[in-house]
Simulated scan of single mutants.
Amino acid sequence: MIGLVQNELIKIWEKKNSWIFPIILVLALIGGSILEMKMTPQYKGDDWRGSVQSEINKLEKQLPTAQTEESLMKSGKDFNWDETKEAIQMKIQDYKSNLEKDVSPYTTSWSNMNGMVIGMKSLITLFVVIICAGSVSSEFSDGTIKQLLIRPHKRWMILLSKYIAVLIYAAILIVFLMFVGYLVSIAFFGIGSFGDNVSIMGTSGEVVASGGTLFLKMILYYLPGLLLVLSLSFMLSTLFKNQAIAVGIGVFVLFVSSTIGQMIQMLATEYTWLKVLVFPHLDQTIFVFQDKIIETVTMPMSLGILFIYYVLFMAITFLFFQKKDVSI
């Protein structure tokens, strides 16, 4: 089995796109960090609280002489909204809120890492779907399936080795994202403390937690959905001999799953049976922000539904491959 897995990994890394995908991740991480630097205020010192308090004091001095938006509009003169009394009061309130929550308003390495997970998880899933959906179908498209099956190994072992190989590739991409993402974040925003609080806006409001803990939690909660999408793509790769069809359907399902999931969440109160459909359960990171997806659907229940679909996909995959005609 080890030899079969090694052989499948060699096949994966022989493809150009297997190397292009990590390069795209690096470029996306660097580009995202540059954009973050331009969009948010930066402060690399250790005493961010002192810097925030200084900003509050400076703004409070400006407040007595600042004019309201209404008075400036009546004057008919051009004005900068950021200099109005309302804008200054809002900034002061935001800064005071940062001090109360002990969350730096400036971008830190761990706040960038958490934002990166949200931004890059769809990209990794897309790369995995493309590799996975072509793993078996490409053997038929290239005409190499017969050479593969004449070896003294049972069909299920050959198929399992392919599945393990794509799992390893997916794991490599995730580890690569974490490692390179951390290096890029340090390069742009300095070394931050694992325990520093960060703030992330979720579907049900703001979440304040330790940056390092939240990052690891986001990665962990991302894995079940990735595994199911990977397994679905692998099943499609087994069902279709045409690689383009398998990849196309896999990518299509990936892009529409989020929209369909949101629609199901809105309709589930009226149609209870919609709760058991797979789409709302693919993104488990939602449980970082809230306890339930739909009414009474908690994380254990959601994982149970994903597990049932996983078993179904795997059963279809291996049973179909066992009986599949390999004539080309």
Rank of each mutant, 00 (worst) to 15 (best):
L232A: 15
L159Q: 07
I12F: 08
V117M: 12
L9G: 04
V175W: 11
T296G: 13
V229S: 09
E295A: 12
K121R: 13
T269W: 08
L160E: 01
Q53F: 00
L230W: 03
T317W: 01
V103F: 07
F252W: 11
V166Y: 00
S138Y: 06
T144R: 08
A66F: 08
G261K: 02
G45Q: 15
L27Q: 08
G225I: 02
L4D: 04
D196A: 07
G225Q: 01
F318Q: 02
V256Y: 07
V26W: 00
I249S: 11
D78A: 14
S231I: 00
L183F: 15
G119E: 06
E14P: 02
F188E: 14
S33T: 05
E14Y: 08
Y169Q: 04
F255C: 10
T259E: 03
F179M: 14
P22G: 05
T238E: 00
L35R: 13
K121Y: 09
L303M: 13
T125W: 00
K15E: 09
D283K: 03
A165G: 06
K241N: 15
L27P: 11
L227F: 13
Y309E: 09
I308H: 08
L9P: 00
V184A: 03
I118Q: 14
P105S: 00
L59M: 15
W156F: 08
G190R: 02
I294N: 03
K121H: 06
D102K: 15
K77P: 01
S210G: 09
I191V: 14
I308M: 10
E70Y: 06
S54D: 12
N80R: 10
A187N: 14
V247M: 13
N114F: 00
T259Q: 09
A133T: 02
K275P: 05
Q284Y: 12
T203P: 06
L59Y: 14
L25S: 01
P280Y: 07
T269C: 05
P152Q: 04
G76I: 01
T107D: 00
I30V: 14
F240H: 03
A244I: 11
I294V: 11
V229W: 05
I164Y: 08
S51W: 03
L230Y: 03
L254S: 06
V52E: 07
S233G: 06
S237L: 10
G143P: 05
E69I: 07
I124W: 04
L72W: 02
S185G: 10
F318I: 08
V198A: 01
K146T: 14
K217N: 14
E70M: 06
G190M: 06
K44A: 14
V256H: 03
H153N: 15
G119R: 08
I260N: 04
V256R: 09
Y163I: 04
W156R: 14
T203G: 12
V297A: 03
M235D: 00
G192V: 02
I186M: 14
L236A: 01
